[in-house]
Design a protein around this nucleic acid. Sequence first.
DNA 1: CTCGCGCGGTTCCAAAACGAGACCGGCATC
DNA 2: GATGCCGGTCTCGTTTTGGAACCGCGCGAG
Lengths: 148, 148
Amino acid sequence: MRYEDLADLPCSITRPLVVLGDRWTLLILKASFAGVRRFNAFQSALGISRSRLQDRLARLVDHGILARRQADDADHVEYRLTRKGHDIYPILMAIRDWGDTYMAPDGPPAHYRHRDCTGEAHVRLTCDACGTDVTAHDIVPEAGPGLS
Amino acid sequence: MRYEDLADLPCSITRPLVVLGDRWTLLILKASFAGVRRFNAFQSALGISRSRLQDRLARLVDHGILARRQADDADHVEYRLTRKGHDIYPILMAIRDWGDTYMAPDGPPAHYRHRDCTGEAHVRLTCDACGTDVTAHDIVPEAGPGLS
DNA sequence: CTCGCGCGGTTCCAAAACGAGACCGGCATC
DNA sequence: GATGCCGGTCTCGTTTTGGAACCGCGCGAG
């Protein structure tokens, strides 16, 4: 089984990981959320090689996560998050919560503040019926309609 | 700048990704949450090569995400999630929510049900002060104590 | 007009990561 | 004492990656 064939498995964790799960893709998206839009800006922000950046961006565009277009002033290219790309934000925030907890000995390098509010954003795993917070122990997987 | 040096950046998204962000690591952890504990079981569940599995497991053990030990019946080795590893679950659930939304045309392959409850678990990004759900647009990063 | 420059993008090659499969020592069973 | 399963290692050929040079385009300055 080749690695890309994992995308055929009926699993909503595996399938995204085939696209997002490599050294650079999520870092590129993190930069996108930070406002980076231009090829050269991605490259200098991340230190990724140009050839790698090129095919990662192309793959994200292929999957409809980023959109490539000429900027309004028409003198350069922009890569912007689509709706689908925008919805990746909770993944990055979940990573960040874990990173703040376990890989930030001097405290969080950044606060992610709620605009016009004193609070910070955090990821919670909740039950959509009873509304309580749950952890891995409280969850039982069960077959769903998309199971082949 | 070598790739591993990204772990020195003061960013709680980048630092975890240096450990978790490759083809296999999150898939290994997904299997761990599904109850897989033995070397050969990981290998046949994922289709990863033995050598790769070996150094991924070693790295996860190094980082305190998995713990390696002889099983109680002492006839084989077990890799089990530590507390630190257990706390990665919201990351996988955030990936799954996105996968269910965008990569599951036939509906979710699995429901992740709250034990003894009719509900399903989902990730939410909320403000810890006002309690409302927030999205990327509502968030403003701000320097924190861990910033070098 | 031409020169230089910044832009996104491509090509090339060496180095690193990876996959497949043979192999190993330990242990238990027959 | 042969067999089989276990976690783990070794070797080797393939794939992926990084680094740097190179390219065509549009632009603004001289």
